[in-house]
């Protein structure tokens, strides 16, 4: 029922009918009741640069302030230098911020205070979605290798679908 919880969290309401009506009105890129959909990256620069090392994660998986903090420190990007020229960096930052998780979404509200969370896999939303369903050892499987490798388990991830597989 994680999806329903999320919707109810977003709404702060208890009516399932209202929740479904609201979900239907959600903009693309927001987790919806339709099945854990996140609009994939559409910008060619973002796709090319981010996907050089990992899947181009949907902008809607982090709030704007997380993307801003992450893009401000590319020379130390999770332990690697991922530096870009200033023009490319500005293009990518603008796209990620414009398409970030909306302020009132569960994802954004769950990381609204304190230091910006930089890893999607460290957001309360991500942790909750995987807790109890995925053994921590599964991420060490050589075929998975990393929590960043969504597509290892979510076969439709590149197309935006993250339902339970």
């Amino acid at each position: 029922m994680a999806r329903l919880d999320r919707i109810l969290g977003v709404l702060g309401a208890s009516s399932l009918v209202a929740a479904l009506a609201f979900a239907a009105a959600l903009p693309a890129g927001t987790a919806s009741a339709e099945g854990d959909y996140f609009r994939p990256v559409t910008d060619e620069t973002v796709k090319a640069e981010c996907a050089a090392c990992h899947m181009a994660f949907p902008a809607g998986m982090l709030p704007a302030r997380s993307w801003e903090a992450l893009m401000a420190d590319l020379p130390d990007h999770f332990g690697e230098d991922a530096s870009l020229d200033d023009v490319t960096r500005a293009t990518i930052t603008a796209y990620l911020v414009a398409n970030a998780a909306p302020e009132k979404s569960y994802i954004a509200r769950s990381v609204a205070t304190g230091d910006p969370v930089l890893r999607i896999s460290e957001t309360p939303w991500w942790i909750k979605e995987h807790r109890g369903e995925v053994s921590p050892k599964a991420f060490e499987n050589p075929k998975v290798g990393s929590k960043a490798n969504c597509v290892a388990c979510h076969r439709g991830a590149e197309k935006g679908y993250y339902e339970d597989d």
Binding site: C53, H54, M55, G145, A148
Partner: peptide
């Protein structure tokens, strides 16, 4: 610390594919 060598990601078989730390 996470990348002590080129072969951390590229492996020591340069005719085959390497793998990023993120699994790509």
């Amino acid at each position: 610390p996470d990348t002590p060598s080129c072969i951390t990601c590229h492996t020591d078989n340069l005719k085959g594919p390497g793998k990023t730390r993120a699994g790509k």
